[in-house]
Design a binder for these strands. Structure first.
Lengths: 192, 192
DNA sequence: AGCTGAAATTGACCTATGATAAGAAAAGGA
DNA sequence: TCCTTTTCTTATCATAGGTCAATTTCAGCT
């Protein structure tokens, strides 16, 4: 079964016919490691489903510092969702950490799909519910946990991602400097 | 027009007939200042729309510290959405900061409504998109801004809320101690 | 394999925020 | 209005994490 169909079926049961309708609106695209597929100022009317590879979404601030919002690996969705949902220009950068195979779909086509296959709208609503919970949980974690605890939670929650990304990228996800992360890692080894 | 109808119509156009169907599933409830309407461990199958009043959602951690996730005033929705969406027991507390008039609806009824009036499902999807963007923006703000900047952004974004809640509650929303917030406020006045 | 630039580590020092405690101010109940 | 409780402020001290700079390690070319 197509990985996207499997992914969708984890939430709802989508018939083969409906999936065929859906997949017709997607286009496979390939990128190479280091490619930045979304850049600030661009107009964003599309999102991607990750078939293969690893990507990172981050904000580059006025001081040249990167703040990582999320990583994406196989079966994740990625875009600048602030721009996508608000119909504003991108503020975020999406970068390929590895060579990537992605499925691309345009917002206008998603809306067509919503009307053609209402189950698809339900799927995206359920996706949003999950993302909402994930973000709320992350905000809570940032409010209540120390940097060390957040690091431990991160590697426990995403052991697969930890292996595939740079430490400085993890640091910028946790909201600390690479130097601090290095210190945490050292202490952690020492206390074993 | 009913405040909920107005609120919904900001996203989609819902006919009077459809709104009548919808409002039939809601029940008005009243609470007094200080009432805690959702408590940890409770099973949560409902959410509220705020007609009147001000509420706060927070996590009470093992050390007895409160971490505020959000405030809600007129025309906001409130629940323990982690429990609501994941069908798990509540971990959060929802507390009335003022006397409140709320519209309560059960998840099962919302699902019935989704099937009866597809536009309602669309409305809730759009709500989730907005919430998603708001949370992502907040995570970014926590990653990139100092506590002082976040305080200034807060009072700028929610001047109405600032007036209605305690400073220690704002502090717990910003992720700092009341003492730190007090210092920030003092500095701010000094630099005027 | 060797070179080069990027990433990670380390150390010295600094600063924002936390912890604790005490007093002042404000809010709420009788 | 007075009294009690809660909230806010202030001061002192402690600490996690930031900054800067130097060094080592690693990864990606050619």
């Amino acid at each position: 079964m197509h990985p996207l169909h499997e992914h969708i079926n984890r939430q709802i049961k989508l018939s083969n016919a409906d999936f065929d309708t859906l997949i017709g609106y997607f286009k496979t695209v390939h990128f190479k490691k280091g490619d930045q597929i979304i850049l600030p100022q661009q107009s964003i009317t599309h999102q991607y489903f990750v078939l293969k590879g690893c990507l990172r979404t981050f904000l580059l601030d006025a001081n040249g510092k990167e703040h990582t919002i999320q990583f994406a690996v196989e079966n994740w969705w990625v875009s600048d969702y602030i721009a996508y949902y608000k119909n504003t220009d991108a503020v975020l950068t999406v970068e390929c950490i590895e060579d990537c195979a992605l499925l691309k779909i345009d917002q206008a086509d998603i809306h067509v799909l919503f009307d053609k296959v209402p189950l698809v709208e339900r799927f995206f609503r359920l996706q949003l519910e999950n993302a909402f919970v994930a973000f709320q949980t992350r905000i809570l974690s940032n409010l209540r946990e120390t940097a060390e605890k957040r690091y431990l939670l991160f590697i426990k929650a995403y052991p697969d991602i930890e292996q595939r990304v740079k430490n400085y990228q993890i640091a910028s996800f946790l909201g600390i400097t690479p130097e601090s992360l290095s210190r945490l890692r050292k202490q952690r080894i020492a206390s074993k």
